[in-house]
């Protein structure tokens, strides 16, 4: 039965779960090279890297419509890499170029604020992953020739960006049944 469902959707071979493919390239971007996709926690937004005038630039779009959302704060800090989104897409974390080195930053799309994450000079960030609630971040760091992951709390820096229906911390008494 599962095989039938998958075949009907155009996939080959037997499958445990049916999958549905969606064209990833919205109008006007079909022939453009796109790398390093990152989905928001709810899957509504897609960040990816595209080429803009020879500079690798992050592009934020609504996944279903392809509508491009503005990211004004990140101009002139290319090349961008390793985008990562929070649950509702309020926060976009990524690596930008700062002087001669990469720097991890978090853009708060709700306030327009940008939060740079300062690291010791001997630690170069290579990749990152922002927790969907925006309360912690994992950084892949090159230290002394080896790759290490370190996780940092952002609770003192960012408000939570949780899935709808979840209470904010300190947001009042629990709901009564």
């Amino acid at each position: 039965m599962a095989c039938t469902a998958v075949t009907a959707l155009g996939l080959s071979g037997c499958s445990l779960w049916p999958l549905r493919r969606q064209p990833a390239a919205p109008a006007g971007l079909a022939a453009e090279s796109r790398q390093q996709p990152a989905l928001s926690g709810d899957g509504r937004l897609l960040a990816s890297l595209v080429d803009r005038g020879g500079r690798t630039t992050v592009l934020l779009q609504e996944r279903r419509t392809g509508r491009v959302l503005p990211l004004r704060q990140l101009r002139n800090r290319q090349p961008h890499s390793s985008p990562s989104l929070s649950w509702n897409g309020r926060y976009l974390a990524l690596l930008v170029q700062q002087g001669g080195r990469r720097q991890a930053v978090i853009e708060d799309r709700a306030t327009g604020q940008q939060h740079p994450l300062f690291l010791p000079a001997d630690q170069e960030p290579q990749q990152l992953s922002l927790a969907p609630d925006g309360q912690s971040i994992a950084l892949e760091l090159i230290t002394g020739g080896s790759r290490r992951l370190q996780v940092f709390s952002l609770a003192a820096m960012l408000e939570p960006d949780r899935a709808p229906g979840l209470l904010e911390s300190g947001g009042g008494p629990p709901l009564q049944p």
Binding site: G41, Q126, Q127, L128, S129, L130, A131, P132, D133, Q135, S136, I137, A138, L139, E140, S146, R147, R148, L149, V151
Partner: peptide, 9 residues
């Protein structure tokens, strides 16, 4: 050595 992090709460 560790890489390719994927983090949630």
């Amino acid at each position: 050595d560790s890489q390719s992090p994927s983090l949630n709460s």
